[in-house]
Amino acid sequence: MTPQDPLLTVRDIAVHYGDRVGCEQVSFDLFPGEVLGIVGESGSGKSTLLNAVSGQLLPSAGSIHYNTRLSDVREIYEMSEPERRFLMRTDWAFVHQNPRDGLRMGVSAGANIGERLMGVGWRHYGEIRGTAASWLGKVEIADDRMDDTPSTFSGGMQQRLQIARNLVSGPRLVFMDEPTGGLDVSVQARLLDLLRGLVADLNLSVVIVTHDLAVARLLSHRLMVMQGGRVVESGLTDQVLDDPQHPYSQLLVSSILQV
């Protein structure tokens, strides 16, 4: 794979729920190290699209090709299920809006981080623990909280733990669904800063769904604006936000409250 090859190639994806349209005619390329934001209001189809491209919801039409580490490009729904699941817990990551959906609330923070490592065959307790401790540090959680369960953590800490749990396996592609959604503003800023740093340091490719245009501006290189299941505008983040062309994009941008 050369840097010019896309990591993820999505073509004409559609998801239909019976007669209803989840999303339709969506195509995009995602390049290594690139962050793609998907914005739009509730019901615009952005979460449906995210679930489809992240291998969790079989689309009604279209293709999703992923450039695997072995340098062969594979259609993700043509892979066998074990292959796809292996990909999803090693080379991919998914950060849920609600950390409870992405964490095991009943086991310690250390075990939450270690799970992916044990899943790929790590069998040395000391090494697993050491790696977990270093990841807690990266997401700014004190290591004396390592043996506590996430249920004793604040919402911001839970979200940071979810990120560590996801990134410990060294994924190249991360999907995020409103990662800062349920957090208050000061916690949100800290998380955004952390995410931005990790994305840059680890050269992650990210597809992030958000309804918050400020989050989209800070994190994403490129934006897709969705309305009624379709992409109505896409382009460079600052171009879409500073010179929106589609009536719906203009409405979205002009609806931002000024502080």
Binding site: S108, A111, E115, M118, G119
Partner: peptide, 19 residues
């Protein structure tokens, strides 16, 4: 079981040792 994804089993043992 079908896909031999057994990392979780070690999570239980990990928890034992950490506690």
């Amino acid at each position: 079981h079908a896909m031999e994804e057994y990392g979780l089993m070690h999570v239980k043992l990990y928890e034992d040792i950490s506690q």
